[in-house]
């Protein structure tokens, strides 16, 4: 049936919810092929209808119309698939920072990685242009409640230098009381766990 594969593509994405499923190259190509075949058939039929209009009035217009609707639908599904993936990637850029975890990276296609880099560049460009010195919008995602927060270290991270120059040693399972602004990045990277 027309459009079935495109529907599968969308279903696959919506099932994953907030996670990014692996880029389904095969299915995307199949949907692409379906579109191509439909367009070709349409062109043939349109030609036949055109040729025979004068002689016997044979017309495939209704077939052509149905196929065209299928083409349109497939196309929209393809776009929706890619657009929603980009949206997901964008969210990840905000959550994880400029370096994505490897298990997410493998799920992205080459063009998506390209877009990711471009998006990061665009944001940086914009942030630099605001105010005299620019602003950093990547940080301060949550309203600050207290200046210092308690965190637990989840991995053996090693030395970590604070803004005031003092160096602390981060060991697995160690607890620290640190300035929120300096931990935020590490919390997002999964080095720290924020103890409420």
């Amino acid at each position: 049936m027309f459009g079935e594969k495109a529907c599968d593509l969308i279903k696959e994405l919506s099932r994953a919810e907030d996670n990014l499923p692996a880029y389904n190259t095969d299915l995307v190509t199949e949907v692409g092929n379906e579109i191509k075949v439909l367009i070709e058939k349409n062109q043939e039929d349109a030609q036949i209808s055109e040729d025979s209009r004068a002689s016997d009035g044979l017309s495939y217009i209704s077939t052509v119309k149905i196929r065209h609707a299928a083409v349109k639908r497939n196309f929209r599904c393809l776009l929706a698939y890619h657009y929603n993936r980009l949206k997901c990637i964008r969210t990840m850029r905000w959550e994880f920072g400029s370096i994505l975890p490897a298990d997410i990276k493998v799920n992205m296609s080459a063009t998506e990685s390209e877009w990711f880099t471009k998006y990061s560049r665009l944001m940086t460009q914009y942030m630099r242009s605001v105010g005299e010195e620019g602003v950093n919008l990547w940080v301060d995602l949550k309203p600050p409640k207290a200046l210092y927060i308690e965190v637990r270290c989840l991995v053996d991270y090693g030395k970590f230098e604070l803004n005031d120059g003092s160096v602390i040693f981060l060991k697995k399972h160690s607890r620290h009381y640190l300035p929120r602004s300096e931990c935020e990045e590490l919390i997002r990277q999964g080095v720290f766990y924020h103890i409420n």
């Binding site: 995307v28 190509t29 692409g32 092929n33 579109i35 191509k36 367009i39 083409v71 349109k72 196309f75 929209r76 393809l78 776009l79 890619h82 657009y83 980009l86 063009t111 998506e112 390209e114 877009w115 471009k118 998006y119 665009l122």
Partner: peptide
């Protein structure tokens, strides 16, 4: 950036929509 991304993923055919 969106334009160029979509163009790349739909480059197999003339854009119909």
């Amino acid at each position: 950036s969106l334009d160029s991304h979509f163009e790349k993923v739909t480059s197999f055919t003339v854009v119909t929509e």
